[in-house]
């Protein structure tokens, strides 16, 4: 359920970013939605169901389509379904928060959401998800259940950040010709926005956007709560809590240490030398391998 909830929230944030960029650009606004769909990894499915990419159809696909299992509505419905299944593992507060999120989403997403209502709807969705996370943080025992909740959250978040980087990596490359042009500024900003990272970045680096700093911030900065390094370290922490009492680290814990060593313990130059794109592609594979290993280690689907 936590993975789905995280996905719902990330998708809501992607739509917000897409909407903002579309509104602040001078050229064809519909064109901006293709990379958004791509970042959410739903472009192929979207194109199978729709002929062209339009803003309305894209937003609807991301937000409430039942044909898209990763739509915000589907994720929240499924998260709540999972929560019912594990009702006894959750505190009443967490359950009520997720149930309220579900009831609210079913109501506000029952019909197509008009442009005027979109910002409010998206904000409310993100707040509801945050409430569940807050209740989890404030009321749940710190036991295996909590560890699994966190694992789901961070596996999804790492995956989400990696996907956004995967789609936009080229604007971050040092060799990019159009450095400093306004186009890139917008692209960079959109990356930061879709990861709720704009404020943090400004705090760290001031208002100047530069690709090198952005890359460092999103990949290696362990204080940035959506960076790959941060998510991976959280996954490692939670796996090691689960591993307590065992003399040897389990397979998934070994795997996550390996990921950290192989990809996240280098400096930026080494990463660019290896190839940012190559690294992100490999990392995406490594995260999904890690998810599979956790399933195996903890008998999710036996």
């Amino acid at each position: 359920m936590y993975r789905l909830l995280e996905r719902a929230e990330n998708t809501a944030r992607l739509i917000e970013t897409g909407q903002r960029i579309a509104l602040t650009r001078l050229n064809e606004p519909d064109a901006e939605w293709r990379p958004v769909l791509q970042s959410a990894s739903v472009l192929d499915a979207y194109l199978a169901a729709n002929e062209t990419v339009t803003k309305d159809a894209a937003v609807d696909w991301l937000l409430r389509s039942h044909e898209n299992p990763s739509s915000v509505l589907c994720c929240i419905e499924q998260a709540r379904q999972n929560a019912r299944m594990v009702r006894t593992a959750l505190t009443g507060d967490v359950w009520e928060a997720i149930n309220a999120a579900y009831m609210h989403a079913r109501e506000t997403l029952a019909r197509k959401v008009g442009e005027r209502d979109l910002p409010n709807v998206l904000r409310a969705l993100r707040q509801q998800a945050a409430l569940v996370r807050g209740m989890t943080h404030g009321t749940m025992m710190r036991n295996e259940i909590y560890d699994f909740a966190r694992l789901g959250t961070f596996i999804e978040r790492a995956d989400n950040t990696a996907r956004i980087l995967d789609v936009k990596y080229y604007v971050l490359l040092p060799s990019t010709l159009a450095v400093g042009s306004s186009i890139d500024n917008v692209q960079w900003e959109s990356i930061l926005r879709s990861l709720s990272a704009k404020g943090g970045f400004r705090m760290e680096y001031g208002s100047k956007l530069a690709p090198r700093e952005i890359t460092h911030f999103l990949v290696l900065d362990k204080r940035m709560p959506r960076s790959l390094a941060f998510c991976t370290s959280k996954i490692r922490d939670n796996l090691s809590y689960l591993n307590r009492g065992n003399r040897e680290p389990g397979p998934s814990l070994r795997l996550v240490s390996q990921i950290e060593q192989q990809y996240l313990s280098h400096d930026l130059d080494q990463i660019f030398e290896f190839g940012l794109h190559e690294m992100i592609t490999e990392l995406l594979g490594a995260f999904s391998g890690l998810a599979r290993q956790i399933e195996l280690d903890y008998r999710f689907y036996e």
Binding site: M1, P69, T88, G92, F148, G152, R299, F300
Partner: peptide, 23 residues
């Protein structure tokens, strides 16, 4: 008195949830 929840270990898959309901 609301005395919630003991560990539900066998449902951990669902809590984290990789891909929806258990197979």
């Amino acid at each position: 008195g609301r005395c919630w929840a003991r560990p539900r270990m066998e449902f951990s898959g669902c809590i984290a949830c990789w891909s929806g309901p258990r197979t």
